[in-house]
Design a protein around this nucleic acid. Structure first.
Length: 762
DNA sequence: TGCGTGCTGATCATG
DNA sequence: TCAGCACGCA
């Protein structure tokens, strides 16, 4: 037995040692799942398996990296590096690169990200002259993605009348045709979207028995993490690959299934036993992470769900502190209170990196960012848009991509007139039209322009030719120059770097810096400083750099820039999956936000929200804060909200209502410029004070009884307006006589009125 | 052709 | 609120 297995408890050890035959591990939150997986892999290696015989699929790149590091510590690093470990998308992209030609794709196929995919759809909708208000690219993509994840291709989609009926009901009868065109265009462009990476892997394995056999033989041991989040397409890949040896180990927790919205099928985990009747099942139920308060609260919440595998998560840890519940009047006040609380905890010795703020939607981060910045508390936002999705980065990458795969229409469209070279929309439209008519890529059209009747003038034809020559000159260097040399050459000679350098606005400078950052990344890639593999002297080319860059996500690169200071983490709950913190603030605990309004229609959607809440709760080790706001800005207008139903699902004995903190020095933080403007961000309490103070200081001018009454108004007061009726004052901005009030009238909604003119009565 | 402006409609989570 | 867009002008 491998000596390190002694670190595990009995069930964990059994699960790690059972390396032959199908195994399912149901791992409750905080039960040491990653530990079992890493030890299991290390154990398999110790039993003499080669690392390349092990296929380990994780949900995120980060999880794969962490696991590799930990395995490296248990066995040895070079072994860990040779494992086939990564996300479904990255592992199968790697296999598809090798086998692409067997399914008719070029080896250097492009991976389209969501933005590219939507753009393809947009072009198709425009070509078909359909209304893009009805045929919205994002909806179309969702529908196509659903189909692909169920392995339904465009032909099958069109042949099944059920789809047509559904699409007709949603006023999109042509969806099938659009799907077919989308498939065709992507294929012609030598491009795969995210779902294709799985779909085409299925096709590859289905149609090429020899290839299937090769990988079945190679992957003697298969492990799948987060099995509850796999979709049908992923499920079938695994099933096929595992068919030879059936040494398959899946790990998951049905209670943490939070990706049904994008096709994850919880049935995969529920049906494992019928797929592999001789499967051994292990349940990890002891939670090592959290206090009794947290574990029991989470259990109470999840018990409200009907669909679940029976299990009892327990802990031997102490009771711990009660869950604190914060109520705030507004979203801004919520930010203020949480930020102050974090500041207070930090002063009492809790490290900032041990604290996290979790929210349902990315848009909620703003109030917290503002207040953390105001209190000089360092923070770090995870997720959001990835470095590689920034416009300026995508522009550069489009040049790279086009050189490597000239039929990549999306890249070509991006850069054909960037930097501006006088090739405008009407020219592009002519090219698009010709390409569609002849069923050719844009590149084929513009590089053989004289073969087509496009109606493009001679002058513009010359510009197009110059563009082609430029791209061809880059292509000629793909095999001779290394990634950094060629990348730099392209960035400079294409005119991108000069153009960005010339822009001295704040955003322009940031864009320039980002492109420089990309260049640094290229340099690191070309000359790896990692000396652990000294014999790796192969030249790294641009194609190697570009190939799977699309698969990196927001969190994957941002770690690099970390300066080492302790920071509070801000992220969505989805992004927090798999992480843990001492202190966790779950914010925005309101009806229609969490649970989301869109989840209220069906029980299964609501149950997914509840599982999401379960995930959020179980991130905390010692202390949980839950907060909600009575009102919140949404799309620029104020909305009132009720506390979330989930709050009621936690036993009262575990919760404590936090008192409103002393509000002493808030006013001191207000800017004292000569023209004192009260900004929106200042808490309502501070506003109340200031408005009252200013009302006393300023002499009443142009007095009527009505005006002086208006001067005395404060937030929360109820007033009557002769036209709008009765309303409540929500916000006051500016100093008399320029004070504006936002008043919520019922009915009538929110109005902003200048108080000196508004005829208000008590 | 390229830009500033004002309107509109949207957003739940992600590889 | 904010981004994406259709418009109108130089």
């Amino acid at each position: 037995m491998s000596h390190f297995l002694e670190d595990l408890n009995l069930t964990q050890r059994e699960a790690a040692m059972q390396i032959d035959g199908p195994v399912m591990i149901i791992a409750g939150a905080g039960s040491g799942k990653t530990r079992v997986l890493t030890y299991r892999i290390a154990h398999i290696l110790n039993q003499g398996a080669d690392p390349f015989q092990i296929l380990a699929l994780t949900f995120t790149n980060k999880a794969a990296r962490e696991m590799k590091t930990r395995i490296g510590l248990l066995v040895n690093e070079s072994y860990a590096r040779q494992l086939w470990m990564g996300t479904f998308h990255s592992v199968f992209a790697r296999i598809l690169r090798v086998e692409a030609e067997k399914i008719g794709y070029p080896k250097q196929f492009t991976i389209y990200d969501t933005e590219d995919s939507k753009s393809v759809l947009k072009t198709i909708v425009k070509e078909l002259q359909l209304d893009d208000k009805i045929y919205k690219p994002s909806l179309l993509l969702n529908r196509i993605s659903d189909a692909k994840n169920k392995l339904i291709n465009a032909t099958q989609y069109q042949e099944n009348p059920v789809h047509l009926t559904e699409d007709t009901q949603s006023k999109k009868p042509l969806l099938g045709q659009i799907y077919a065109l989308y498939e065709k265009r992507n294929f012609r462009a030598g491009a795969m979207d995210f779902d294709d990476l799985l779909f085409q892997t299925n096709i590859l394995l289905r149609d090429n028995p020899k290839v299937l056999l090769k990988y079945q033989e190679q992957f003697r041991y298969i492990l799948v993490d987060e099995y509850q989040d796999t979709n049908f397409s992923q499920y079938l890949i695994i099933k096929q690959l595992a068919a030879r040896f059936e040494n398959i180990c899946v790990v998951g927790d049905d209670a943490q299934s939070i990706y049904a919205f994008r096709g994850a099928n919880i049935q995969n985990i529920l049906n494992f036993k019928s797929d592999y009747p001789e499967a051994r099942i292990f349940k990890l139920e002891q939670n090592y992470r959290s206090t009794v308060t947290i574990v029991e609260s989470a259990n109470a919440v999840i018990s409200q769900n009907q669909d679940q595998l029976p299990k009892t998560v327990f802990t031997k840890n102490g009771t711990g502190a009660p869950i604190l519940v914060f109520r705030a009047g507004s979203d801004s006040e919520e930010g203020q209170r949480i930020a102050h609380y974090i500041q207070d905890r930090s002063k009492h010795g809790v490290a900032l990196h041990d604290m996290a703020i979790l929210y349902r939607t990315n848009a909620q981060s703003r109030a917290f960012e503002e207040w953390l910045r105001r209190l000089n508390i360092p923070y770090k936002i995870y997720g959001g848009i990835s470095f590689y999705q920034r416009k300026e980065i995508k522009d550069v990458l489009a040049y790279f991509r086009l050189c490597i795969n000239p039929h990549d229409d999306e890249s070509l469209k991006r850069i054909i007139n960037y930097p501006a070279r006088g090739i405008g929309q009407s020219t592009l439209d002519r090219i698009l039209l010709t390409a569609a008519e002849q069923d050719l890529s844009l590149w084929t059209v513009i590089s053989n322009l004289h073969d087509f009747k496009t109606g493009i003038s001679k002058g513009i034809a010359e510009k197009l030719e110059a563009f082609c020559i430029k791209i061809k000159s880059y292509q000629a260097l793909l095999q001779t120059q290394n990634a950094f040399e060629l990348g730099q050459h392209i960035m400079v000679s294409s005119g991108i770097i000069p153009e960005l350098f010339a822009d001295k606005t704040i955003e322009g400078v940031a864009r320039y810096e980002n492109v420089q950052e990309l260049l640094n990344g290229l340099k690191d890639f070309t000359e790896p400083q990692n000396t652990s593999e000294p014999n790796e002297t192969e030249t790294r080319f641009l194609a190697d750099f570009v190939q799977d860059i699309t698969l990196l996500t927001g969190t994957d690169l941002s770690d690099e820039k970390d300066d080492g200071t302790s920071k509070v983490s801000l992220m969505t709950i989805h992004a927090a999956k798999g992480l843990e913190y001492e202190f966790v603030c779950i914010v925005g605990m309101e009806e229609n936000l969490f649970p989301s309004q869109l989840s209220l229609n069906s029980r299964s959607d609501l149950e997914e929200e509840r599982r999401l809440f379960y995930v959020a709760l179980t991130r905390a080790k010692t202390q949980l804060i839950l907060s909600y706001a009575a009102s919140r800005f949404k799309y620029g207008t104020m909305h009132f909200s009720e506390p979330s139903r989930f709050l009621d699902e936690i036993p009262k004995s575990f919760m404590e209502m936090a008192l409103h903190p002393a509000q002493g020095n808030v006013a001191g933080k207000i800017k004292t410029t000569s023209q004192q403007i009260i900004s929106n961000e200042i808490s309502t309490s501070a506003q109340k004070k200031l408005v009252r103070v200013s009302a006393h200081l300023k002499p009443v001018s142009g007095t009527t009884v009505n005006l002086s009454f208006n001067q005395q108004l404060k937030i929360g007061d109820s007033v009557r307006h002769e036209k709008f009726g009765i309303g409540t004052i929500m916000h006051l901005n500016g100093i008399w006589p320029d004070t504006k009030a936002e008043i919520a009238f019922n009915p009538g909604g929110l109005k902003t009125l200048l108080l000196k003119f508004a005829r208000l009565e008590a």
